[in-house]
């Protein structure tokens, strides 16, 4: 049984290598950002070791760089990570028979990437938390090490070059956002967030505009999608009535 677990962990690890490699690109950007934000190497690595969440860590160091308070940073991180609830809820039924301790441990390693690999594996093969753990450990290693490498690059970048490399963060986020924008409500979300964040960053004290724009824009997207659904139902209703 032990060796079966080990085998599953290794399988999960190996299947996640391609995503691990792409994770390292984010990792490099994170490391560069952390260096520019004035974190030291231990803090940079500690964040990857204990927080272990890509978009959140980049957000946190960006907010440190612009001088946000700790409380607003922690809240923002929490909000960004709310999507984990959805991923956990979708994997949980497959892992019903695993022990609570094991689930407490493996869930720490859950990321967008390991979730994606594991979920698709569970459609084909009997689900195990060992596989999920192996997949998560892969991302953990790639993410942690690329962050450290990025940190040293970050320290080599001169002030003049930093105008260019600061854009790496913007570009990385654009690379994350664009694939998420597949529907009209998602377009609404992005536009509303853009407007609120610009106005908010000018007029709202501190960095609370990030949370405010995040919540209002999500709500705008939600409303848009409800309205579109209602309209569709109405149209359907009219058609059936006419027939």
């Amino acid at each position: 049984m032990k060796s079966e677990n080990a085998k599953q962990t290794i399988n999960g690890f190996i299947d996640t290598v391609p995503l691990g490699i792409s994770t390292s690109i984010y990792g490099l950007v994170y490391g560069v950002m952390a260096a520019n934000a004035g974190l030291n190497i231990f803090e940079t690595i500690a964040m990857s070791v204990f927080v272990f969440a890509g978009a959140s860590q980049m957000t946190a160091v960006q907010m440190i760089a612009i001088g946000s308070g700790a409380l607003s940073i922690i809240l923002t991180v929490f909000i960004i990570n709310l999507r984990h609830f959805l991923m956990a809820a979708s994997l949980a039924p497959y892992l019903k028979n695993e022990s609570v301790t094991k689930k407490m441990i493996t869930s720490f390693f859950m990321t967008d990437e390991s979730y994606a690999v594991t979920y698709s594996q569970f459609q084909k093969e009997p689900p195990t938390s060992s596989y999920f753990l192996g997949s998560g450990l892969n991302i953990y290693l790639f993410w942690g090490s690329s962050g450290a490498v990025g940190y040293f690059f970050g320290n080599l970048i001169s002030a003049q070059m930093s105008y260019v490399f600061d854009f790496a963060f913007v570009a990385a986020f654009i690379g994350m956002i664009v694939p998420m924008v597949k529907t009209k409500p998602a377009v609404v979300t992005v536009l509303v967030s853009a407007v609120i964040s610009i106005v908010g960053s000018l007029y709202i004290p501190g960095k609370w505009y990030i949370i405010i724009a995040g919540l209002f824009a999500s709500f705008a997207g939600f409303l848009a999608s409800e309205l579109i659904e209602k309209k569709k139902q109405k149209e359907k209703g009219v058609i059936t009535y006419e027939y």
């Binding site: 957000t59 960004i80 956002i177 998420m180 924008v181 998602a186 979300t189 995040g214 209002f216 709500f219």
Partner: peptide, 11 residues
């Protein structure tokens, strides 16, 4: 919608 909303407000 949370992820695209928050990520957009950052950049």
């Amino acid at each position: 919608f949370i992820a695209p909303a928050v990520l957009t407000s950052l950049i």
